[in-house]
């Protein structure tokens, strides 16, 4: 919903800058954590540069006038090219197929996330954010599936994925209600929001890894699943 103050103002709805930076940072962390080889890391670093260019250029394109906008569009295009190069690298360079499978959805997801936060249409932003973070999560799942990462890395990467989505969604929500332009300062609220999220994530990671240390390997697999299902049902019980 859009609260409205009434007075006419040029109010441009756009995800907030701080949220964009946070979301992309967490997303990169998630993708980076599930890599194993130096080649993979280099590809992720290339993608980071490209995604940064897309985000920066896209914002300049939307905000600026003529020259700045043109420069921004050019930068965003170059960034997309860099991401494309990274994608091609990810397909060709890693020695093992599993390494490619782990990397591809994550890189694509990061690019989609960067595009989502520089939306051509604000109304689509949420859907595209979900798609981008979903792809990043798919990469994390793939890593888990092919045993491509340690348990700790996998758990932390999942937490980072959720935090990335949280920051992105919050940026979209703030951008819709408060706006990202004209000096409407939102960074403080966003940092506090992300900080609270990180706190929850840290506690969750510690608890989950603590459970892992308890030696659940001895536990029947079915029992573990039942426990988790019970936890999900419990949290759905009084759904918000």
């Amino acid at each position: 919903m859009t609260p409205d103050g009434g007075g006419p103002e040029r109010f441009v709805r756009r995800p907030t800058s701080a949220g964009v930076v946070l979301a992309l940072g967490f997303g990169l962390l998630a993708t980076g954590l599930v890599t194993e080889t130096a080649i993979q890391r280099r590809i992720v670093a290339t993608t980071a540069v490209g995604v940064g260019m897309v985000a920066l250029g896209g914002r300049a394109w939307l905000r600026g006038r003529s020259v700045v906008a043109l420069g921004g569009a050019g930068l965003a295009l170059c960034g997309s090219l860099v991401v494309a190069v990274a994608l091609v690298d990810a397909v060709l360079r890693p020695a093992q197929v599993t390494h490619r499978v782990v990397l591809l959805p994550g890189l694509l997801g990061l690019w989609v996330l960067a595009v989502a936060l520089v939306p051509a249409r604000f109304r689509w932003a949420r859907g595209v954010v979900d798609a981008g973070v979903g792809l990043v999560f798919l990469g994390v799942l793939a890593a888990g599936f092919v045993r491509g990462a340690s348990t700790t890395a996998l758990v932390v990467a999942t937490a980072a994925t959720v935090l990335s989505w949280d920051a992105a969604e919050n940026a979209v929500s703030l951008g819709g209600q408060v706006g990202a332009d004209n000096g409407a300062a939102t960074a403080r609220a966003e940092l506090v929001h992300a900080g609270a999220g990180v706190g929850v994530a840290a506690v969750a990671v510690v608890v989950v890894l603590g459970v892992a240390r308890l030696g659940i390997d001895g536990l029947p697999f079915g029992a573990l699943v039942a426990l988790l299902l019970a936890a999900v049902a419990f949290s759905l019980g009084s759904h918000r």
């Binding site: 888990g144 348990t151 758990v155 959720v162 994530a201 608890v207 936890a231």
Partner: peptide, 18 residues
Amino acid sequence: AKRPALLLAAGIGVAFAA
């Protein structure tokens, strides 16, 4: 896929759901 590590990762999701 019988991957306990992914079950643990699911635990993170449950924590955020709570």
